[in-house]
Nucleic acid binder design. Sequence first.
DNA 1: TCTAATACCTTGTATCGCAAAGTACCAAAA
DNA 2: TTTTGGTACTTTGCGATACAAGGTATTAGA
Lengths: 110, 110
Amino acid sequence: MENTIENIRAQMRKGLLDYCILSILGKHEAYASSLIEELKAAGMIVVEGTLYPLLIRQKNQGLLDYRWEESTQGPPRKYYVLSDKGREQLAQMDAAWQEIIESVNTLKRV
Amino acid sequence: MENTIENIRAQMRKGLLDYCILSILGKHEAYASSLIEELKAAGMIVVEGTLYPLLIRQKNQGLLDYRWEESTQGPPRKYYVLSDKGREQLAQMDAAWQEIIESVNTLKRV
DNA sequence: TCTAATACCTTGTATCGCAAAGTACCAAAA
DNA sequence: TTTTGGTACTTTGCGATACAAGGTATTAGA
C-alpha cells in the first residue's frame, strides 16, 4: 500500500469515473480509446482494463447505447451514446457532485 | 447493484473519506464518534465499520497519533491528532482535490 | 504473409466501504 | 449489588471498483 501523491490522486478519482464517462458522452458520442484520450487530457487517467468493464456495466444499466462504425485505420469502433436514462442519471450526478464539493468545503470551513 | 441517487452519492464519496478525515483533524483533534457526527453534519455519511478501520490504516501509515482521554459519560475516548507526516499528506491532498475539481470542469467544458 | 497499429475484452488481485455482530466501559436505576 | 442503557471501540464477511496483465480480432502496409 504505497503512499505516493499518485496513489492519493488515484484514490480520489475512484467513484468519479462513472460520472466522467457520462459527462463526456453527454457532450458527444465516443468509443473507448477516444474516451481514454479525452480523460487523460483532462488529467483523469484510466486504463483499458478499467474502462471496458465500466462501459459494459453502464450499458447493462441502460445508461448507454452503442453502435458499430467502420474505421479508416483499424478495426471497427463501438461508439457509445447516452440513453434517456443515462441523461437523467447524469443530471443526478451533476447535483451529487456539487453537493460533495459543498460537503468538502463545509468540512474545510469552521 | 442498485442505482439510486443515494448509491450514486455513496459511490462518489469513495476515496474522499481519507481526505475528509485528515481535513477535520487538521482543524482540531477528534475521536471516532465525533468525527462521524461532524462528517454527517457536512453531508458525508460514514458508519463505524468504515471509519475505525480507516483510522487504523492512517495510524499505521504514520499520518495520525492518538491519546486516550477519560470521558465524563462513558468509556474512554481515543483522540486522534494529525502527525507531521499527516500534515504533509493533507497538503498534498488539498492540491489533488483541486486538480480533480479542475479535471471534472475540463471534461464538462468543450 | 508477416508485422505494427488499433480496438475490444477477460481474468486475477487488492482495496475500500458497508452491514452486522461483538467487546468493553461507565453510571444510574432497581 | 446486579441490571440496564448509553457510549465507544473493534472485527468479520461481503459486494463492488480499479488496475495490471494478458488475450483476441481487424486492418493496412512492408
